[in-house]
């Protein structure tokens, strides 16, 4: 017996209750999802080519060599931040090691002293020339109007929070 749903003619009652489903659409979505998953993984692996190094690992850990494009993680040293001629310069430290960084432009976000950041670029002649800065916020959240901290001490408190 042919049980294929009918959508016209004297099968109008059936047509009202069984809408013809577009089975190709889920197939297309599955195919797109598979391709998109592949693209996402590929992009992640491609970005991982740039080694993720802490400041104290530059020149020590394999892959964190001078002259090679890397990502450097550290905390912006208090009092080192300066902006001139459209460039931002600061020092980045981690585990008592420090590196000078120069970035052409304004990093944006909540970039400031005492905050952990990730700088993308190359170390050349003792200066890390960065073309991308990402601010790495810690998982600590402190209320701005916390009465336990005096107003004048807030900036210093934020610094200590970030450096942990």
């Amino acid at each position: 017996m042919d049980l294929t749903p009918r959508t016209s003619g004297d099968a109008s009652a059936t047509a009202q209750t069984m809408k013809p489903r577009r089975r190709w659409l889920p197939m297309v979505i599955v195919a797109v999802a598979i391709v998109a998953g592949g693209v996402v993984v590929t992009r992640f692996l491609t970005s991982a080519i740039d080694y993720y190094c802490n400041v104290d690992e530059i020149g020590v850990r394999s892959g964190c060599d001078e002259g090679r494009r890397i990502r450097v993680q550290g905390v912006v040293v208090e009092g080192s931040l300066a902006k001139s001629d459209g460039a931002t310069t600061f020092k980045l430290s981690f585990h008592d090691k420090t590196v000078a960084v120069r970035y052409e432009g304004d990093p944006g976000g909540v970039f400031q002293e005492c905050i952990p950041v990730v700088a993308h670029g190359r170390l050349q002649g003792g200066l890390f020339a960065s073309d991308r800065i990402e601010v790495k916020h810690s998982n600590e959240y402190v209320e701005k109007n916390d009465t336990r901290i005096e107003e004048s001490d807030k900036e210093a408190a934020a610094c200590s929070v970030q450096e942990g």
Binding site: R21, R23, L25, P26, M27, I29, V30, A33, I34, A36, G37, V40, V41, R43, F44
Partner: peptide
């Protein structure tokens, strides 16, 4: 990346339900 992958996976799951 892993969150985006999770999202895509379950989009695929819903599509598979409609096959």
């Amino acid at each position: 990346t892993s969150t985006a992958f999770l999202f895509i996976t379950y989009i695929g799951y819903l599509a598979v339900r409609g096959l």
